[in-house]
């Protein structure tokens, strides 16, 4: 057994801490739960989006050569965690992933300019193939990047398609990538196109993982506060281990999940060819943790937790609502297995 001697440093640099604090403050001020509610059912708040542009939330992730600030995934996950913590009604994850993709190909330059000017919100169609699919951020985006056949394609529309009602009140919409109302341009072909598309999918999963950790943390705080305050049988309910230990399990998932996300992020940014299983791993773990966290919070809050008045249900809806667009999360374990064990061999085929 040969041991790979590597550092295991999960900490943030001073700059990263400052960035995190800035976005924490921003979302705390700009995105209270009332704002999330008032953006329902459409899942988009135009004014918040504008203010977020003022924070350069999308531009920061674009390389300097493309007119951005050149931040890496290490920084973007800090923003994404705060987005998730407030379940902010803005498609920032999709937009930043798509903008980075546009910056990677010369043919994307014009659209990227429009994105940085704020006139276009771009997104990514997560499933390879040319037909109709539900696209995250698709009801506010005018540009979607997709893999159609072997081509990486930019599909543009004059105006976004109608949102479809959904459990997570997310801004998702059907995009018919072969339809007559989209104008298509090829950004890259063959191997290059497929690789870029795969990389974008991995980036989307990493940032979404970070958002899910943020969601879990936020509902944990709601549950802990209630467990301290609520009295039953003459004692705060937090003294009952059935309550406290389920919150402890959530706290462990949040802390450990965050470490996993950081590790996956670091590899994707610095050594993308190594330990590729970490991205599907982080994504699967984070979505599972968020489902558990929101379930526990709704339960700890008692009957009130189950009402639409409770903030816990805002998170409960989005734990699935922000992820299922990518498909059944259990499939991530398949991707993970392919990376770790090599592709399955079909006997007799």
């Amino acid at each position: 057994m040969d041991l790979d001697l590597r550092r295991a440093d999960y900490s943030l640099s001073d700059d990263q801490e400052a960035l995190q604090a800035a976005f924490e403050t921003f979302f705390e001020r700009e995105c209270p739960a009332t704002r999330v509610r008032s953006a329902e059912p459409f899942g988009f708040d135009e004014e918040l989006w504008q203010r977020l542009a003022g924070m350069r939330a999308v531009a920061m992730g674009v390389p300097e050569s493309g007119g951005g600030d050149g931040a890496g995934l290490e920084e973007l996950i800090l923003v994404a965690e705060e987005v998730g913590r407030r379940v902010a009604p803005v498609p920032v994850i999709e937009a930043v992933v798509a903008a980075r993709l546009l910056a990677a190909v010369p043919a994307g330059a014009d659209t990227l300019d429009a994105v940085l000017r704020g006139s276009v919100i771009p997104t990514i169609a997560l499933h390879a193939g040319g037909g109709d699919q539900l696209v995250p951020g698709g009801s506010v985006a005018r540009a979607a990047i997709a893999l159609v056949g072997d081509d990486l394609v930019l599909a543009e529309r004059d105006r976004p398609p109608e949102q479809v009602a959904n459990q997570g009140h997310a801004p998702i919409a059907w995009w018919d990538l072969g339809g007559s109302d989209v104008e298509r341009r090829t950004l890259a072909t063959g191997r290059e196109g497929r690789d870029l598309f795969e990389q974008a999918g991995r980036e989307w999963r990493i940032l979404t993982s970070a958002a899910l950790i943020g969601m879990s943390r936020a509902v944990l705080d709601l549950g802990v506060q209630h467990a301290r305050d609520r009295v039953a049988f003459g004692a705060p309910i937090g003294t009952f281990q059935a309550v406290s230990h389920s919150l402890v399990d959530v706290a462990m998932s949040v802390d450990t999940g965050r470490r996993l996300v950081r590790k996956a992020t670091w590899y994707q940014q610095h050594e993308p060819g190594v330990h590729r299983h970490l991205v599907p791993m982080a994504y699967f773990y984070a979505q599972e943790a968020a489902v558990e966290a929101t379930t526990v919070a709704v339960h700890v809050l008692g009957g009130v937790g189950f009402t639409v008045e409770s903030d816990a249900q805002l998170y409960f809806r989005r734990a699935k609502g922000w992820t299922l667009v990518a498909g059944d999360p259990q499939r991530e374990l398949g991707a993970l297995a392919d990376q770790l064990f090599g592709p399955a061999q079909v006997v007799g085929a």
Partner: peptide, 18 residues
């Protein structure tokens, strides 16, 4: 295959938890 993938995930968590 599916179970081994899940266990690999859990063992990774055991390794990085602190």
């Amino acid at each position: 295959r599916h179970r081994l993938a899940r266990h690999a995930l859990d063992v990774e968590m055991a390794t990085i938890a602190t």
